[in-house]
Design a binder for these strands. Structure first.
Length: 891
DNA sequence: ATTGCAGCAA
DNA sequence: ACGTTGCTGCAATC
């Protein structure tokens, strides 16, 4: 960009704010006073980026004004059918205008016109005055304005990534000139504006026609000579197309209160801006803006990343030998891991501002030694998403590193309910710079053009970035007193999980194949019987087709509504079976059972690796409470409640012929209720656990006012359901439905419980109230979960948050205790030089592969370690079993 | 490719 | 509207 050209930046405020609102999760952007700020954050973040990128000399933001526009007047259905914008959005537009005012950026509106018309007018005026104009808008109609002097900056995904739509880019994407883009839009239609186009005509067909006939009026004129089905379709919809064409034309000659000269950048009101950002609690964003406004050179933040050096094998070795043992080292690799096998080809390393990268395959022996020593001995290694990389490195022959910080996990601890923790996003958010593209652009040309080197440099940048990010996140965790959770619980877990996943668990393939055949045959039989019962075939797996059979064909009474019709879930079907006695239902239910089992065993079979074992992956940053989750396959939901289901657990066995003899399972009994007893301090409940009697009978005796041996099986099961339900925030209505009893009886049960265990109720209530006032819940070890929805005025949203607030400290403390136990078990097994190893974790249970002759020692070690993992006011009971399969090791 | 339903676990 | 936290597979929809 030449410095003497004047650059005009024009932004569609409403459309960008709206995109930001939906791109950023509202629950992660809310101030302590409850103001939602996601749209403001996204908008301002986009604004900062675009100011840095475009360096405009002139700038303006347009907003829509007035409900009545000329488009609506011509077509009353314009933009109809759009969902009502949520209340959380409107207030944020005002905040955005406040920010713009402080930044001295004029806001332009014109009654009866949309923001894009205003922008089009200003852009044309600017272009006429010899300026370069950029229009930031989420409305593609603006493409029609693209020219040598006007570029459209269209947000690709979210609001952070803007595509530059020049005339060439428009032509490349749509095959037509910007002027003809209107024709494409008119033919294809725009769903968001409720402007239907020609059915069957997409961008390709539209472009073909426009190229052939020149422009849309010519296409319309020639409509009669266009053959085929689409030709007919076009003739039928000419009216709509002409209307779309009129409506999507942007107005470029509005009379505005603001002229291009008025948009010259003015003096920023720093004080107002500081106040505003304080109020919005935008710390990082404030610093980013500060950096941008403060420096006259307006250096890009990403320019701060040191340029990575690509090293030869010899250079790499000497770099490693010169590493400072006291300073953090960032590591990033291109590791991939699937089905028990990993690959890692290249590595980036960073210490201080020295960033290097190399191909691992090129390393000679001394290079491998030096890297091994770094991994084994350095005390300050930082990764982002370490576990898969550790596994791949270990399989490549390197030692298992001791890692100080995994920035993905640190970011999870800071905000545990985010969907993704991408390094780039986190750097933008917490450090105010962006390491940029983490992987080279797709496409075969890249390799030829040095894509491999670019990929190496990206690894170097990632390695450096993760060190900066670790420092930023640790500072935040220190403020929240959560460094202990990071260092003592979640970091040590990473290597333990990596080892468990590398081990995997052996399966008996013959037995597994047997189950596939058996469950498959059962499913086929039930399906046949079901078809016979109604006289025709139907896809039993399709709720929609089942509804047709049950409610239309067989005229059965309607079940509970779902979004798309009536439920056909197992409860409802069982209910219908009682009411109608129709044999179809019986066979359908049997089919559901066996097809589900078959699906499960087929899924497991698919995941057996070449070593005959299943290597699940544990996810450490998914469950908002601190639990682990398991994928590929999920080994935390293997059936156990039915006999048929339990048989699946029989295919999990110890490794054959390697000195392993049995599997051992160890689980905490009623850990969540014990935690509830501890946290509430309820004397009765604590006494119940200390008595060591059957908990549900003990509680049942209290609730029903009878002796412990007078508690019937029915009473016990009711109490059991209620006790478990309490941990989840169960209501009387929910309890009544689950137990198939009246709401009154359920209410009496709950009242009875709370009367005898008063401190439990007090604890549950105060726990929610406390979370509402501070904004988060806490486990016994300080792991937080933020729940800003606790102050929502939408009842359903608020109550959902209340139940989450009730559950999170209990579920989360249990998860913490299990993690601590696993860390200590791992250490104790090592210490005692035992060969047995932990393979699986299922929330309150671990599965251990027992080396021959080690049962007694391992059982004792695990019982005492798990039982002593936390000091509660009640004992932590551990059940242990062992046997030749997972099923038989259970108890 | 995404959404909804259904069903498994703790 | 009415019980938390997860994952997977299928059908239907875009």
């Amino acid at each position: 960009m030449s410095t003497d050209t004047q650059r005009l930046l024009l932004i569609d405020g409403h459309s960008l704010a709206y995109r930001a609102f939906y791109a950023l999760p509202a629950e992660n952007f809310s101030t302590s006073t409850g103001q939602t700020t996601n749209a403001v954050y996204g908008f301002v973040s986009m604004l900062i980026n675009v100011l840095a990128d475009e360096e405009p000399t002139h700038i303006a933001v347009a907003f829509d004004l007035g409900r009545q526009t000329f488009r609506l007047a011509e077509y009353p259905e314009y933009k109809a059918g759009r969902a009502k914008t949520p209340d959380e959005f409107h207030g944020q537009v005002e905040l955005i205008k406040d920010v713009l005012k402080a930044l001295a950026i004029p806001v332009v509106v014109k009654e009866g016109f949309e923001a894009d018309d205003v922008l089009a007018t200003l852009a044309c005026q600017g272009a006429a005055a010899g300026m370069e104009a950029g229009i930031v808008t989420g409305d593609k109609d603006a493409y029609q304005l693209a020219s040598d002097s006007i570029t459209i900056l269209y947000p690709k995904r979210g609001v952070s990534d803007l595509t530059r739509m020049t005339p060439a880019a428009v032509e490349e994407k749509y095959g037509v000139t910007p002027a003809n883009y209107r024709g494409i839009a008119a033919l294809v239609g725009e769903k968001a504006d409720n402007l239907p186009g020609v059915p069957g005509v997409g961008e390709k067909t539209a472009a073909k026609w426009l190229t052939k006939y020149g422009d849309l009026p010519n296409v319309i004129e020639a409509a009669d000579e266009i053959g085929g089905k689409v030709g007919g379709s076009l003739r039928e919809h000419l009216g709509e197309v002409e209307r779309n064409y009129r409506l999507n034309q942007l107005i470029t000659d509005l009379e505005l209160d603001v002229s291009v000269a008025d948009t010259r950048r003015g003096e920023v009101d720093r004080e107002a801006l500081d106040d505003l950002f304080d109020q919005l609690e935008f710390q990082v964003l404030g610093r980013r803006l500060e950096a941008l406004l403060g420096s006259t050179t307006e250096e890009r933040p990403s320019a701060d990343i040191p340029e990575p050096r690509l090293l030869s094998a010899a250079e790499f070795t000497s770099w490693l030998q010169a590493v400072d043992a006291e300073a953090p080292v960032g590591i990033a690799t291109d590791a991939q891991f699937a089905l028990g096998l990993g690959t890692v080809d290249s590595i980036g390393l960073a210490q201080h501002d020295d960033v290097v990268a190399t191909d691992l395959s090129r390393l000679d022996e001394s290079g491998v030694d030096a890297l091994s020593r770094l991994l084994a001995e350095h005390a300050h290694l930082t990764f982002h998403g370490a576990k898969a990389q550790l596994k791949a490195l270990v399989q490549a022959g390197y030692p298992m590193p001791w890692l100080e910080t995994d920035t993905e996990i640190a970011a999870y601890l800071v905000v545990p309910d985010q969907r993704a923790y991408e390094l780039t996003d986190l750097c933008t958010r917490y450090c105010g710079f962006s390491p940029g593209q983490t992987e080279p652009e797709e496409g075969t040309l890249d390799l030829a053009l040095g894509g491999a080197d670019a990929a190496l440099r990206a690894l170097g940048r990632n390695a450096w970035s993760t060190v900066q990010l670790a420092a930023a996140l640790r500072a935040i965790l220190a403020d929240a007193k959560m460094v202990g959770v990071l260092d003592e619980i979640d970091m040590p877990m990473v290597t333990i999980l990596a080892q468990m996943e590398l081990s995997g668990i052996a399966v008996d393939l013959t037995a597994l194949q047997g189950l596939i055949d058996e469950f498959g045959a059962q499913a086929a039989d039930s399906a046949e019987a079901a078809y016979a019962a109604i006289g025709h075939e139907v896809n039993l797996g399709s709720p929609k087709q089942l509804q047709a059979v049950l409610f239309d064909e067989l005229q059965m009474p309607k079940t509970k509504r779902t979004k798309t019709g009536y439920t056909t879930d197992a409860d409802a079907l069982a209910d219908l079976l009682v009411k109608t006695g129709h044999p179809f239902l019986e066979h359908l239910l049997a089919h559901r059972d066996s097809i589900k089992l078959k699906q499960t065993v087929v899924g497991l079979h698919r995941m057996v690796a070449d070593d005959g074992r299943i290597h699940t992956s544990y996810l450490q940053t998914v469950a908002a409470t601190g639990r682990l989750s398991s994928v590929d396959p999920n080994l935390q939901n293997i059936p156990v409640r039915t006999d048929a289901g339990r048989r699946i657990r029989d295919v999990f066995v110890p490794e054959q012929g390697a000195g392993f003899s049995e599997l051992l399972t160890a689980d905490y009994s009623q850990i969540e209720m014990r935690i509830m007893a501890h946290l509430s301090g309820d004397e009765s409940l604590i006494a119940a656990f200390r008595a060591g009697e059957d908990l549900h009978s003990y509680v049942g005796a209290r609730v029903f006012g009878v002796g412990v041996d007078e508690v019937t099986a029915e009473m016990r099961s009711k109490v059991k359901a209620m006790s478990y339900g309490l941990v989840y925030g169960l209501s009387a209505y929910g309890l009544s439905r689950q137990l198939q009893i009246g709401v009154d009886e359920a209410r009496e049960l709950m009242d009875g419980y709370f009367e005898r265990f008063g401190a439990v109720k007090a604890y549950l209530d105060s726990s929610v109230e406390n979370a509402r006032s501070v904004g988060y819940t806490e486990t016994m070890y300080g792991r937080r979960r933020y729940l800003p929805q606790l102050t929502s005025d939408r009842r359903q949203v608020r109550e959902m948050a209340e139940r989450a607030a009730l559950n999170a400290p209990i579920q989360g403390s249990a998860a913490d205790i299990m993690k601590i136990a696993m860390i200590r078990v791992d250490a104790a097994l090592r210490e005692a030089q035992l060969k047995s190893r932990v393979l699986l974790q299922v929330h309150d249970e671990i599965v251990v592969e027992l080396a021959a002759e080690e049962y007694a020692q391992v059982a004792a070690l695990i019982r005492s370690t798990m039982g002593g993992a936390a000091a509660l006011s009640v004992p932590l009971d551990v059940n242990i079993g062992h046997g030749p399969t997972w099923q038989q090791a259970g108890h």
